[in-house]
């Protein structure tokens, strides 16, 4: 079993406030894992650590075996990221946005052009290539951000609450698209969310985070069985109430 992401004993504090406490979990290659937690659970802090915006002296994050603190270049080269806040340059065209991302990973013009064509076709946006990002709707912008994260063909994709602000059908489409990436391209996905309806597949794995701690992890049936409840809502609702 190849581990795409391995988090071991990760802790982090902002001053006196503990944001993450001894967090450990793994994401297998070519699998879909949801990091599920109510607002304030520590998901975004984890995301900042996993993308090396800052790092923690306590614990370790390994991406395909590369420690992100000690080998950041090798780790980040294997990682695609979709941030919670939109990060497209709205005044640039779709193509310019994608080219920029490709160049940040050192891809030359010709290779970038080939990959842009492939990713836009995959996400059904080939005809929007020269349009300014500002003209795209929210769902399409998110697709472009996922396409952008895939430009350097990373084997691990992190998405931080990518469906925020989207309507239900668009959310479903995105969830399905990302599942397809796991199935057809063998990409490992870590999807952070506080929306339990974004999880449904029996093969999906879930890491339940609350108040900076991992409460449970495993496939959905395993997590439900361990908690002795019949559905995710019964497990999640009390945690969300506690957080608020």
């Amino acid at each position: 079993m190849t581990l795409a992401l391995e988090v071991t004993g990760l802790s982090y504090s902002f001053g006196a406030k503990r944001a993450l406490s001894d967090v450990s979990f793994t994401v297998e290659a070519a699998s879909f894992t949801a990091l599920l937690g109510p607002n304030g659970a520590g998901k975004t802090t984890f995301f900042s650590l996993a993308t090396r915006l800052f790092d923690s002296p306590a614990g370790a994050i390994r991406i395909f075996g590369r420690d992100i603190r000690h080998h950041p270049g090798e780790a980040l080269a294997r990682l695609g990221v979709v941030f919670q806040d939109p990060t497209l340059d709205l005044d640039l065209s779709v193509e310019q946005n994608l080219r920029y991302a490709a160049a940040l990973h050192g891809l030359g013009r010709r290779e970038a052009g080939r990959r842009i064509e492939r990713e836009l076709a995959r996400f059904g946006l080939a005809d929007r290539r020269h349009e300014k990002a500002r003209r795209l709707n929210g769902g399409h912008r998110r697709r472009i951000e996922i396409a952008r994260a895939l430009m350097h063909e990373p084997p691990l994709l992190l998405l931080d609450e990518p469906t925020v602000g989207l309507d239900v059908p668009t959310r479903r489409q995105l969830v399905e698209m990302v599942h397809r990436l796991c199935r057809e391209d063998g990409i490992a996905v870590l999807w952070t969310t506080h929306l339990i309806d974004e999880l449904d597949g029996a093969d999906d794995r879930v890491v339940l985070l609350s108040q900076g701690r991992v409460q449970s992890r495993g496939t959905i049936p395993e997590v439900l069985a361990a908690a002795g409840v019949s559905d995710l809502a019964s497990l999640f609702t009390p945690l969300a109430a506690l957080a608020s």
Binding site: T51, R52, L76, L79, V81, F83, L88, L104, G106
Partner: peptide
């Protein structure tokens, strides 16, 4: 977030 994107370059 777009500064974060820059900083995720390897």
């Amino acid at each position: 977030g777009s500064m974060r994107m820059l900083l995720t370059s390897p």
